[in-house]
Computed example of a mutant assay.
Amino acid sequence: MSTIRLLVGLGNPGPEYSQTRHNAGFWLVEQYARMHGHTLQPDTKFFGNSTRIQKGGMDLRVLQPMQFMNRSGNAVASLANFYKIAPEEILVAYDELDLPPGVAKFKTGGGTGGHNGIKDIVARLGSHDFHRLRIGIGHPGDKSKVTGWVLGKASQADQLLMDDTITEACRSIDILLQQDMRAAQQHLHSFKAQREK
């Protein structure tokens, strides 16, 4: 059994951002909560929306920080400190420029990849040791176009790829919680391989 106790999805609050690529992490936690019959509720104590999913041996808190991407760490650290959740018991889902739409990958620790949400979480937790779930959104090809890209809407084709991947990623999180990281990674990898056939 994995010891993940907190699942975080990164994005920006507000209707003007809800359909933008940068909100892939929000989409994931909303869908994950739905799959388990929950909805995320405003939780001002932790600067975001949250829910708690308890099933079998699973006791998972799900969090959507609502203070804009570059201040995501505030919500994460507040909840983690309150419930005494260690960095290595946290999984953070977010958009990844370096992966194409249709691909998602787990990763443990490492750098921030220039992602403002991850940077702030590292700063607030004082640790790089949390797990990440990177959801591919593709790259516009030029550094100067990155801001417009992440804050823009994906094409219909790319959106469908991302939606499918998020569904599989949610299933992989269940596998991670019931088994371990390796089994979860294998599930995501086999999903990608099947689609490429």
Results as ranks from 00 to 15, higher is better:
6 L>T: 08
7 L>K: 10
9 G>A: 02
9 G>Q: 03
9 G>T: 02
9 G>M: 03
10 L>T: 04
10 L>F: 05
12 N>K: 02
13 P>D: 10
14 G>H: 08
14 G>P: 11
14 G>Y: 06
15 P>N: 14
16 E>H: 14
18 S>D: 14
18 S>C: 13
20 T>K: 07
20 T>I: 04
21 R>Y: 06
24 A>Q: 05
24 A>E: 10
25 G>S: 05
25 G>W: 07
27 W>G: 01
27 W>P: 02
29 V>K: 05
29 V>P: 01
29 V>H: 05
30 E>W: 00
30 E>A: 02
32 Y>T: 01
32 Y>E: 01
32 Y>Q: 01
34 R>T: 14
35 M>L: 15
35 M>H: 13
36 H>K: 10
36 H>Y: 03
37 G>D: 04
38 H>M: 13
39 T>S: 15
39 T>R: 15
39 T>Y: 13
40 L>V: 09
41 Q>G: 10
43 D>K: 05
44 T>P: 11
45 K>I: 11
45 K>A: 13
46 F>L: 03
47 F>W: 06
48 G>T: 00
50 S>L: 00
51 T>C: 14
51 T>S: 06
53 I>D: 01
54 Q>S: 13
55 K>C: 06
56 G>H: 08
56 G>A: 12
56 G>C: 08
56 G>N: 12
58 M>Q: 14
59 D>E: 10
60 L>W: 11
60 L>N: 10
60 L>R: 12
64 Q>R: 15
64 Q>N: 05
65 P>F: 04
65 P>Q: 06
66 M>Q: 15
67 Q>N: 15
67 Q>D: 13
68 F>R: 11
68 F>S: 07
68 F>G: 04
68 F>L: 12
69 M>H: 07
71 R>I: 09
72 S>T: 09
72 S>V: 10
73 G>D: 06
73 G>F: 10
74 N>H: 13
74 N>V: 14
74 N>S: 13
75 A>K: 05
76 V>Q: 11
77 A>H: 12
79 L>F: 00
79 L>E: 05
79 L>R: 01
85 I>C: 03
85 I>V: 01
85 I>L: 03
86 A>D: 13
88 E>G: 00
88 E>C: 02
88 E>W: 03
89 E>G: 05
89 E>H: 09
89 E>D: 14
91 L>V: 00
92 V>F: 05
92 V>I: 07
93 A>C: 08
95 D>G: 04
95 D>N: 06
96 E>D: 15
96 E>N: 08
97 L>D: 12
97 L>R: 03
99 L>P: 04
100 P>A: 09
100 P>H: 06
101 P>A: 04
103 V>E: 15
103 V>I: 15
105 K>A: 10
105 K>M: 12
105 K>Y: 04
105 K>C: 09
106 F>P: 13
106 F>G: 13
109 G>W: 03
110 G>L: 09
112 T>F: 11
117 G>E: 07
118 I>K: 00
118 I>G: 07
119 K>V: 03
121 I>C: 06
121 I>W: 08
122 V>Y: 03
122 V>W: 01
122 V>K: 00
123 A>L: 07
123 A>K: 09
124 R>K: 15
129 D>H: 12
129 D>F: 05
129 D>I: 02
130 F>D: 08
131 H>W: 10
132 R>D: 13
133 L>K: 05
133 L>M: 07
134 R>I: 02
